[in-house]
Simulated scan of single mutants.
Amino acid sequence: MSAAPPHERLARIRETVRRLRDFDGPDRHTPVAMAVRGPKARALAAEVADTVTFVQAPDESRAEVTRLARDLSTIRDVELANAVSVIGDRVAPHMAPPDTDTAAARAADSLVTLPDDPAAAAEEIQRRREEIGFSCFVIGADFADTFAPVVAKLSAR
């Protein structure tokens, strides 16, 4: 089975969310999260999503993703999620290609990376919250032990 063209996939998502809202009825609201990139997908996310993350290349700059986040927030207030696929020099295998160049990602000041030092990672997360508006951070299960001290530092604030 071949993949549907993008416009058809977006129409399917819109219809799926409409049916979910019908199913929810007036007393429930099942949250919808979307990972988006292109302008049509971002527009649909602004219309129907509760949480949005941006699909990004490991070497994509902070400035570009910040622009995408600000553009989206001018349309509608949604929760912004930051998918982190690199911590230090480790790559989450299900979130990024195994040959991801971690040094290039850091050099680009990419938002897919966090430092492996818990204090520095907590500072960076706080910076992303304040400067860009990210309130949700997605990490791979492979990073649970590495990320636990970061959560502890953030919880103490």
Rank of each mutant, 00 (worst) to 15 (best):
P5S: 09
E8G: 04
R12S: 08
I13T: 13
R14N: 11
R21K: 13
D24A: 10
R28I: 02
H29K: 14
T30D: 05
T30M: 08
P31K: 06
P31V: 11
A33I: 04
A35Y: 02
A43Q: 12
L44D: 06
L44A: 02
A45H: 01
E47S: 03
V48D: 04
T51G: 00
T51W: 10
T51R: 02
Q56D: 08
A57D: 15
R62Y: 13
A69I: 09
L72E: 14
T74Y: 00
I75G: 00
I75S: 11
V78N: 07
V78Q: 09
A81S: 14
A83W: 01
V84I: 15
S85K: 03
S85M: 07
D89K: 08
D89F: 01
R90D: 12
R90E: 12
V91P: 03
M95W: 13
T102L: 09
A107S: 10
P115G: 04
D116P: 00
A119Y: 04
A119T: 14
A120L: 11
A122Y: 05
A122R: 07
Q126Y: 01
R128D: 13
E131C: 09
I132Q: 04
G133W: 05
F137Y: 14
A141W: 15
F143R: 09
A144L: 14
D145L: 14
T146C: 01
F147S: 03
A148I: 03
P149A: 06
V150H: 07
A152R: 15
A156F: 06
A156W: 07
